[in-house]
Amino acid sequence: MRSYIIRRILQMIPLLIGISIVNFTIMHLAPGDPVDLLVERNATAEERARIKELYGLNDPLPVQYFRWLGHVLKGDFGKSFVDGQSVSKTILERLPYTLYLNFLIMVVIYLIAVPVGIISALKQYSKFDHIMTTLAFLGQAIPSFWIGLILIYFFGLKLDWLPISGVGTIGLSVKTAGFWATFADRAAHVVMPVAVVAFGSLTGVARYMRSSMLEVIRQDYVRTARAKGLPEKVVIVKHALRNALLPIVTLLGSELPLLFGGMVVIESIFSWPGIGLLSIRAILQRDYQIVMAINMMGAVLMVLGNFLADLLYVVVDPRIKYS
């Protein structure tokens, strides 16, 4: 097992380098570069060349790539071409907001989706199952920006129950208003974004849970458990559920990158200062350093997430062994 883990970690290195090369190349192949957006549109060729020289954009691509890689290995993601600020600082400023929102979303999704999936499976084709299936399709089909605007309209404007945007009231902090008032304020701000994303995504997990449960309760060992006269509760919770949860646990592992990922639509609707707005802007402005940093963060998390999922298999399923 230990050699397996070491081998997997070693395999990640060439994989990540490969991803970074592909990312770097694609980004530089896109038309336009940051200098085009910095200088005047009618700047002369010499003026452009001089500015490109200052930013090291005149060098051949491989030279630029290895320079970038060298800095990254030292932990330096460089400075933004557009505003001159440190890339790591810019990302770290926003990461807490993204993590905070995504963590709450995940918790809500799993708290609702798992029981809903189980009940749907146990009462297959019941009224509850039909309602849940319909809601599931609605959640997937309705665009989140639309739900977001509707919620803002009703709960923010008409009923005036919730604040419509932002992370908190400006100027309100633990210092000025005390812990509980601040907590209530922050909570009120996060309700709508969490609700919108959770509604759109929990259906996926719920359907997953439902089919996994359906598969398990048809297994021989569940029939055996029933046959030997165990109470239904024990059959479901102890024999069926534990096995049905297996794929869900591994799903969690592969969702790790999602926890760090931005959501452009939600962030712009609810004015949430997350990673999504930062990355879309960086792409449009060809701010290479920020785009690369965000892409690499995604790549590392994806690779780690998959690795984690594989390890979780071993933990939850004794039949699987790596050597």
Binding site: L149, I152, G156, L157, D160, I164, E267, S271, P273
Partner: peptide, 16 residues
């Protein structure tokens, strides 16, 4: 200056 990523939301903020 409060930031809004969407004009419709800013409009709701004005009304609110």
């Amino acid at each position: 200056w409060k930031f809004y990523g969407d004009n419709q939301v800013m409009l709701a903020a004005l009304e609110k």
